[in-house]
Amino acid sequence: MTRFEITTAIAAPPQRVFDVSLRIEVHTAGMAHSGEQAIGGVTSGQLRLGDTVTWQARHFGLRWRMTSRISAYEPPGHFVDEQVAGPFKRWHHAHHFEPDGNGGTIMRDVIDFAAPLGPLGTIAERLVLNRYMPRLIGIRNAEIKSTAEA
């Protein structure tokens, strides 16, 4: 299993960043390069506690689907999305939003994931996913930052 964290400074208050982070349209705009779409569950607007969404995207030339659920939701401090069906053995993404003391937000993503397929999945994590996943979250965070600061 792999764990990584990404911290992003955003010049907007925590409640705004929290809300922007839960908007389907912001997520799909940030993932446009992979053709990501919400195709099931909540497919537009803002996610809330207990909501599920099924995402479809193309990564590594293959079409993937992942259904995630908002399993924790405490505005404006944090929320968690977890895979309930999809390509990972485990996917747990905690989103934290803390005031920076200057009217902005420090957004911190903590992701725990594990690839399927036992030893082959471990090799995929080490060779590919440990670099690919942080880059993907960084692209998503750039879209959240741009939207929240607009």
Results as ranks from 00 to 15, higher is better:
I70L: 11
G101N: 08
A9Q: 15
D100C: 07
I39S: 04
K145P: 06
Q83F: 00
T43S: 05
M66N: 12
F113P: 00
A115P: 00
F4R: 02
I24D: 02
H27P: 00
S71N: 07
G138E: 03
G61T: 11
R140V: 06
V20S: 03
T122N: 08
A57Y: 15
G86Y: 10
A72R: 14
H33F: 14
S21L: 01
V80Y: 02
T28D: 01
I144Q: 01
I6A: 04
A9V: 08
Q15P: 00
G118P: 00
A72E: 15
H93E: 09
R140P: 06
I137T: 14
Y132W: 13
L129Y: 07
F60Q: 13
E36L: 13
R69W: 02
I106Y: 01
G50C: 07
W64A: 01
G45M: 09
A12M: 07
A150Q: 13
L120K: 03
T105R: 02
E5T: 11
Q46T: 15
H95A: 06
P13D: 14
F4D: 01
F88R: 03
T43D: 05
F60M: 14
D109Q: 09
T2Q: 12
T7E: 15
L127M: 13
Q46H: 05
H59F: 14
G118F: 02
H78F: 12
G104T: 08
D112C: 04
P87M: 13
D51H: 13
A115G: 00
I144L: 07
E36I: 06
L49S: 07
P116N: 10
Y132S: 12
M133F: 15
G30R: 03
W64V: 04
A150L: 09
H27F: 13
R135C: 04
E143N: 02
R16N: 08
T28C: 03
L22R: 13
W64I: 05
G61Y: 11
G61F: 12
I111S: 01
T105E: 04
G50N: 07
A57F: 15
R90M: 10
T105H: 05
R69L: 06
I144R: 02
D100K: 08
E25S: 11
I6R: 11
Q37H: 08
A72C: 05
R126Y: 06
M1T: 11
K145R: 15
G40L: 10
R65T: 13
V128H: 09
G101P: 03
E74F: 07
T122F: 02
L62R: 15
A57N: 04
L127K: 04
A12C: 08
E36P: 00
H93W: 05
P76V: 10
A29G: 02
V110R: 10
A115D: 00
N130P: 00
N130S: 15
A38I: 03
I70A: 07
R58A: 09
P75G: 09
P87H: 07
A150M: 10
D112P: 01
D109E: 12
L47N: 07
R65Y: 08
R108I: 12
R69S: 06
A57S: 12
R131W: 12
R3T: 13
P99Y: 01
A57T: 05
T43L: 03
G77M: 04
P99E: 03
I111D: 02
G30C: 11
Q37F: 04
H93N: 11
Q46R: 14
P119G: 03
L22I: 08
V80G: 04
A114I: 00
G35E: 05
T28V: 13
F4T: 01
W64K: 05
